Amino acid sequence: MVVEMDQETQAQVKTLFAPLDSDVKIHLFVKEHECLYCGDTRTLAEKVAELSDKVQVAEHHDEPGKGKAGEFGVQRVPAIVLEGKEPYKVRFYGIPAGHEFGALIAGIIAVSTAEIPLDGAIIEDIKDIDEPVHIQVFTTPQCPYCPDMVKLAHYAAILNPNIESDMVESLEFQDVAKKYEVFGVPKTIINENTAIEGLASPDLFVDKLYEAIG
């Protein structure tokens, strides 16, 4: 996969990054061999970091469960974890390219500013969750509806430390997609017991979060 960013896109991202508050660290988890998209994911992360002096890349080669991978709960590579005001449990498994590039940019802004563009009642409902929640959103780069679902899941993880959220690129991790019977995207799995097919409204998403812990 060729990772390119034209001048217009670079200018748009620089404008979006203007309000960044806290520094953001893109924790990049890769390995040198047997990882088809690790190099492209590194290139993408580095290109994004070049667009703001508040964004840096920290590269890690830890095995799952060890070192920084253990600290951030990283189970596979390539992976990106975003750290801003806090070390949030916001992860991208697979290269966030295509439509998912927008979700990466939105995630960087959110972890830096902690400003979440959701209705106040939705935010309070998410903050009130007091049990562990693990959200996995399965995507493909060609899916136009996937980024909004990823953003919802990641916003939840930023709002509540009990919540962790993963974007999982289905084509790169076909074994995981097969396990969860992903035949269309986005598909969201919450706590292994609750599924959302397609893009959910914030209200439905919150209902499903509570269903998963009920």
Rank of each mutant, 00 (worst) to 15 (best):
F101H: 15
L36G: 11
I135L: 07
K178L: 15
F72V: 06
A45K: 00
P87H: 03
Q75V: 14
T188Q: 06
D128L: 12
K54C: 01
Q12F: 03
K47D: 03
V24A: 04
G184K: 13
E4I: 06
L51E: 00
E192H: 11
E211K: 12
Y145D: 15
D128H: 11
T9W: 00
T113I: 07
D130S: 14
K14W: 15
E115S: 13
F92Q: 02
G73P: 07
V2K: 06
C143F: 02
D40V: 02
A121T: 14
G102N: 07
E46T: 12
E164I: 01
M1A: 07
E131W: 10
I190S: 06
I123N: 13
I105P: 04
V185A: 01
A69D: 13
P96Y: 04
K66V: 11
V176P: 01
L44W: 06
V57H: 00
Y210S: 05
V90Y: 00
T41P: 01
K187H: 12
I126F: 08
K25Q: 14
L104G: 01
P19R: 08
V74M: 06
E172V: 09
M1R: 04
K85M: 12
H33W: 11
A212E: 10
A177P: 02
F173R: 12
L51I: 03
P19M: 09
A110M: 02
A212T: 03
A212H: 09
E50W: 00
E32L: 10
T41V: 02
V133R: 06
E197C: 14
L104N: 04
D130M: 07
P141H: 02
E86Y: 15
Q7E: 15
P78F: 05
S165D: 03
A153P: 08
F101V: 11
E46L: 13
Q136D: 01
Y210Q: 13
N193K: 10
S52V: 05
D21F: 03
V137E: 08
K14Y: 12
E211T: 09
N162C: 08
L209E: 10
I80N: 00
H99G: 00
D21G: 04
D125H: 11
